[in-house]
Amino acid sequence: MKNIPIDINESSLVVMDLIFKLKIRDVMTRGLISAKRCDSMHHIQQLMKDNSITGVPIVENKRLYGIISIDDIINALEHGYRDDPAEKHMTTNLVVLDEDMPLSFAINYFDKYGFGRYPVLNARQEVVGIITTRNVNISLLMALIKEIHELESRIEPHPTPDNTYMLKEYHVRQYGFDEAGKASNNLKKFLQEHQHPTRLMRRAAVAAYELEMNLVVHSTGGTLTIIVTQEKVEINVVDHGPGITDVEQAMREGFTTANEWIQSLGFGAGMGLPNARRVSDEFDIESSPDGTRVRSVIYLNPQDAPAT
């Protein structure tokens, strides 16, 4: 298995850009814990234990002489030479990295040589730090998070139709019970602020909540969009699957596919979709294994509602 699961030749442009832009010096640990040639193996074992590390470079006056790894310590314990100086057992055939190299070199080295850490030298051949797979993973993760934020901030919002006075999109996660209710509660607060009749608010909130919970309980995640215009509240739900096998059956009260722990939370009573339809003036649902789409409309003025 690769130490760091990134192909440094064939990854996405963003990843390639990151691993060439980041330098070893941006990623390495600087506060280096080292020992001297004359320090005992026992002393180094203690250093590892105290600092939760598995390798200690042997450094004097910034010059690198060798490295003692946890394997060397295990050998020392096994063969009873804990009191020997490090000099006698350290690895001297060292692979090092230069602080100016791009991160891609480190990723390559971890795969090529199989060491757990590499000392890092500057142009004057002085030890300036050490790099581990943990350093690489954390810095890559942080850089990717930053990159994703930037990409997301560039996404254009949907154009808002002229007569819309609220448009909100919620991303709903599977089993995201803690967040559930956000969309419907916000919708209700919005309608409350605009002084719509209580019964109407409740209908809209019920439709939004049931559809939101359906995403949480049954889908692998999806999006709930709420549009409020002068005339109506429209709730659109799109998920990524797994789809409803029999829509007609799902619309019947009491039919449920929810498991026991979901039911123990008070959901999955087989009332969600029937409830949402009952409070809606218009209600459409279509489903395939690729996903389900639901549209619920509630008119703000009852006379606009189609006769049912």
Partner: peptide, 17 residues
């Protein structure tokens, strides 16, 4: 009156007045 002691109960209560 219920045994459902979790945040979703409050979300539902709010929606249903």
């Amino acid at each position: 009156i219920t045994i459902q002691a979790h945040t979703n109960t409050i979300a539902v209560a709010f929606n249903a007045d």
